[in-house]
Design a protein around this nucleic acid. Structure first.
Length: 299
DNA sequence: TCTGGGGTCCTAGGACCC
DNA sequence: TCTGGGGTCCTAGGACCC
């Protein structure tokens, strides 16, 4: 249940503020604890990773009658290490032949679980799941699938590849087919270059471009400074500077501008972002303002 | 999920070039 | 000036993810 809905239903509940520094600190502890045992890790955000276990010593060993005893013990060890390093945080692990199946498997036994799946387990354990569970099938795709009578992953798997391509296009159709059959050749990617860096803020009350001009201007400049300092701290410059606005009706627009050369200083970013802002109709009140640097180049 | 912040990737049209 | 094919870049929006 979403927080706001919960708060509405439980008026006496105490809502604690978010503590993002603490989350980040625990995120680092969690990843470091995993890395001690299995160093090949793909970062998927603050609380999620893919781990390549193939070459970890012992992962391929059978234990007694259990052909997967070795990897099972290893996953258990990882969970123990995370709990110890983070002062008690649990985690769920899915051990499977690929990333998509692992993601699905990790959710089968949610808090504090361990699920092992082979390709042969797909019909019994994956196909009954709602299509929406697949990473890459969001609310829109799920609704389109449902309109075609496809509700579970198995429903998708039962359709022919060609039919899915007819309905969803060459790219997404083929992807749906592969995903439903547990086919996923993506490697675990341990390093990647950032594509963009951005800062955005939602106002406590919707602001008007004219009436709240001074406040908007201050926030706008501050966001540009934050983007600039993020770029500088991480050693990047951006050649495309953009803005994002969300109006009181939740309609969101973006504008961007590609410069002749990549930049990282707040004044230049502010100037480019200002030019972007001039291209937007500002008659509606604003609830969000963001600044973004893209087309990044390493300094 | 009535909605915070930070991302990635895809699509599509238009400009511009050969 | 028009026709035609093909490529890249820029811009805007949208879907999706944690």
């Amino acid at each position: 249940m979403g927080l706001m809905k919960a708060a509405a239903r439980a008026p006496d509940a105490v809502l604690l503020p978010t503590d993002f520094d603490s989350y980040r600190r625990h995120s680092r502890l969690f990843k470091a604890a995993v890395a001690e045992l299995a160093p090949v890790i793909e970062d998927r955000g603050i609380d999620e990773i893919y781990i390549e276990l193939t070459d970890v010593p012992g992962a391929q060993d059978a234990v007694g009658h259990d052909p997967f005893g070795g990897v099972r013990a290893l996953a258990q060890e990882i969970r123990n290490n995370v709990r110890r390093a983070t002062g008690g945080l649990t985690c769920s692990i899915g051990v499977t032949p690929n990333k998509r199946l692992s993601k699905l498997a990790s959710e089968l036994d949610k808090p504090d679980g361990l699920t092992l799946l082979t390709h042969d387990d797909i019909p019994a354990h994956i196909w009954p799941l709602a299509a929406r569970k697949v990473n890459g099938i969001g609310p829109k795709a799920a609704a389109r699938l449902a309109a075609l009578g496809l509700h579970t992953i198995g429903d998708i798997a039962a359709r022919e590849r060609g039919w899915l391509i007819e309905q969803f296009g060459a790219h997404y159709g083929a992807w749906l087919h592969d995903a439903a059959h547990g086919i996923d050749e993506r490697p675990v990617v341990t390093e990647s270059e950032p594509v963009s860096m951005s800062r955005e803020t939602t106002f406590e009350r919707d602001l008007h471009a004219v009436r709240d001009r001074a406040e908007l201007g201050r926030v706008f400049t501050a966001l540009c400074e934050e983007v600039a300092s993020d770029l500088q701290r991480k050693g990047y410059r951006g050649r495309t500077i953009g803005i994002k606005l969300r109006f009181d009706d939740f309609k969101t627009v973006t504008r961007d501008l590609t410069l002749d050369e990549a930049v990282a200083d707040a004044a230049t970013i502010r100037h480019a972002a200002g030019l972007c802002l001039k291209r937007v109709d500002l008659s509606k009140r604003l609830r969000l303002l963001g600044v973004r640097a893209g087309a990044l180049a390493k300094v």
